[in-house]
Design a protein around this nucleic acid. Sequence first.
RNA 1: GUGGAUGUAGCUCAGUCGGUUAGAGCACUAGAUUGUGGUUCUAGGGGUCGGGGGUUCGAAUCCCCUCAUCCACCCCA
Length: 416
Amino acid sequence: MFQAPRGTSDLLPQDQKYWRYIESKAMALAGQYGFGRIDTPVFEDSNLFIRSVGEGTDIVEKEMYTFDDRGGDSVTLRPEGTAPVCRAYLEHGMHNLPQPVRMYYFCPVFRYERPQAGRFREHHQFGLEVLGDPDPSVDAEVIEFAWRLIISLGLKETSLLINSIGDAECRPAYIGELKNYYQGHESKLCPECRQRLDRNPLRLLDCKVATCQALGDEAPRSSDHLCQSCQDHWTSLRGFLDAVNIPYRIDHRLVRGLDYYTRTVFEIQPLVGGSQSTICGGGRYDGLIEGLGGRPTPGIGFATGMERLALNLERDGVEVPDSPAPKYLVANVGDAARPAALELAARLRAAGVGAMLSRGTRALRGQMRQANALGIPYALILGDDEIEQGVVMVRDMEASTQEIKPLQEFLDGAVG
RNA sequence: GUGGAUGUAGCUCAGUCGGUUAGAGCACUAGAUUGUGGUUCUAGGGGUCGGGGGUUCGAAUCCCCUCAUCCACCCCA
């Protein structure tokens, strides 16, 4: 037997409601905030991700689905959503549009990781980007969007964490200080963190080993080492967030795993849940587009994981509307009734009314069971008698009542 | 990539000191009701016991390998 590849899964009809619910809420908000949808290819030139996400990151080092296509070009299944959008911005000359350009997307994302609850090799993200506006009010608006999405979905018990990690001007000096600090305590670090000291000092801050955490509490804070412009940006951002009553918490140890982030970073996490619990993450990336060969263009965005949102909706018991069953099930008894039933169902659907043919069972009983099992509100019964008289029996499944109507009269009423 | 746990019907799980033909509930199909659902009763279909190899007269049960899922690390949505 075949089974879905490791870390992938089927989204079955009965589970679709959560996704459709999230999509409809997200799209409605995107419209309100003036975002236009963009869809980019599932795979891209591998170098796009190497250059944007960063060569030292886990994603590029060991998680990308990279292969040579038959023409010998190295392509990679999208491991994140921001770089392709920036590529599209450049490729289509969007800097000529009124700035900033606001775009959102739903797309599958691929990372070769060891699967676990809430973490998959293929997952799906809703995300958005604002390109071409450096102002902290945009940061606030993007964060407010993310928060509003979570609230409007009905998720409770979540917290919003923010931090500022500086930019190309001030971060190198900060990282130097951080290294200095940790080198003074190297003997107390866990083995992993000793490696981080060279490779990725920022990540020292979010180690979960207790002794490292204790060191992290006393470590120099990025927000205390910002250059003047980053400092101003950070201060303004908090003011704006206060102005729109967004309940953020500053987390000095919030750093993110992609190299392109500058200044603002943020995450939304549920208060309960396992280790794979972050449901939304994002930040500013003012150097990314320039790094991809464009003119200096600021950007900010975030992404949410559909699977994790759905997981949280289910766990929180959020009531999610299911897609309604067709209004009519057309039951039929006898050979003559089968084509008549098919025609009746077709006429109803042509007029925009939901109707489906019952399973071809000889016993009417089975067809009524079907209507019941599918939650179809009305059964239409066609037998030899009805066809002969040009009528149809309409049964209200919930009220357990039924009446005989002339076919044309029924159709007029059903369609009207 | 590291460590640990778990894999028996579509689902939830019994069954394992090795011993006939592997079970239950739910779900599904049908009958009771020759043209009427939900409740009830009855019957039926459905299993390479995750896969492969080994030990044995005999393996769902013991051993090895492998695959998958879950948990933690790592990392992230």
